[in-house]
Design a protein around this nucleic acid. Structure first.
Lengths: 225, 225
DNA sequence: ATAAATCTTTATAAAATCTTTACAACTTTA
DNA sequence: TAAAGTTGTAAAGATTTTATAAAGATTTAT
């Protein structure tokens, strides 16, 4: 079970049953509505990740249900309908349906179309932000803040700082840092490291003379806490 | 003309002609490719907003073209195919196609499905106007205003500006910007970017010498705030 | 077909960053 | 504590990156 919930809206019990079995055996969580009224209520009370909507409902046209849902519901809606007229299809798509399948449809195709619309609706990017006391590093935005103010770091400074932060608490050797940032042919250039560590401390530390985050491990390397 | 460009990939001249006329009369800008090789090259050199891809190409299967495109192209691809087998449909959808239409298709339905996938790829249904201080960007109308006055941006300038605005606060690398706007074969042409950033600043910033919105992250890329 | 607009390329000045140097300050060890 | 080895810092010089204008090429509109 992957916890993706799909709401089936259809008045025919055989179709609901068939869809439910198909979807459940493909690890979706299913809920059902048998008419327009119930569809609106169920969608509102417990919004699913996707809605499969029949157009031929007993109490109200599926087109109306679609319009009402789209006033607030922005996740995918796939129309399943016995009507194959171009007018129905165009109307439904322009009212915000993400796809339109004519009954009888093939199960594999339905599942593929479900995967397709879920894929394109779930393109949200997660934003991993690291927090260390007054410091925060937004890796996807490539931004470092101290007390909520942006600190301007050069490309190399940022790379070095990230490497230290990602290995919080660990001692990173001169050798390792030089190899990671400047490449294997620079492992002897310890002076680079000293210059950049000093610059970083000047920007990041409250008192660069008594660093509280970037600590020196004499003879070995540096450690971030 | 709304400047939304669609690439038609089909080896049959009648179909290309029909599609071109249909799309152009609906205000789309059209380019054409007659085989797999040309499709890849044209998409890479000048990425369109949407690709209509025939599966039956003379030099290589459309399935392969789809896979190659999806390695970097993230905008909508709609398959147009004479094959209606479930296997073809499922394969194409799982390879990243956004929709699959069986030939012969109805023109109105094609246009509705194009509108549908473009709508969900732009995801700005809720708030199609972005505000940043004195600037506002109407994504659906493709209009940028500064202090309520329309700023005239060329197509490329607008695409670049949109990309920056949609990722407000994030640093976008040269590589990413070049790949998104000019295609993967232009990732080394940083000078393009500098020229267009300069032009954008001249139009958008109060003082182009001291930009307040489009910031430079030296050695990395640009950031919009 | 011509004019206008836009894109691409080139050249160069300015700015930012990196590298190197010199020396001061600190740590470790005997 | 003194000597030796390490580390920190500032600043000058070298290099890379960026900004900008403008000329040439291409595309688009009339």
């Amino acid at each position: 079970m992957n916890n993706i919930e799909i709401l089936i809206v259809d008045d025919e019990v055989q179709i609901r049953k068939m869809l439910t079995i198909t979807l459940q055996s493909n690890d979706y969580k299913v809920s059902e509505a048998i008419n327009a009224k119930e569809a609106i209520i169920k969608a509102a009370n417990h919004p699913p990740e996707l809605i499969l909507l029949d157009l031929g409902l007993p109490d109200e046209s599926g087109h109306i249900v679609l319009q009402k849902l789209r006033e607030w519901y922005s996740k995918p809606i796939i129309i399943l309908s016995a009507h194959s007229s171009e007018e129905d299809i165009v109307t439904a798509l322009d009212n915000g349906a993400n796809d339109y399948l004519v009954k009888p449809f093939r199960t594999g195709e339905l599942l593929a179309r479900i995967r397709s619309v879920l894929r394109s609706s779930n393109q949200e990017d997660e934003n991993p932000i690291l927090y260390f006391g007054e410091l925060q590093i937004d890796l996807s935005a490539r931004i470092v803040k101290k007390n909520d103010e942006i600190i301007k770091l050069t490309s190399t400074e940022y790379t070095l700082f990230c490497l230290l932060c990602k290995n919080e608490g660990k001692v990173l050797t001169h050798h390792y840092l030089l190899k990671s940032i400047w490449g294997p042919s620079y492992v002897t250039q310890s002076q680079y490291l000293r210059v950049f560590i000093a610059q970083l401390r000047k920007k990041v530390e409250d008192d660069p003379n008594r660093p509280s985050h970037i600590l020196t491990e004499s003879g070995v390397g540096y450690r971030f806490v």
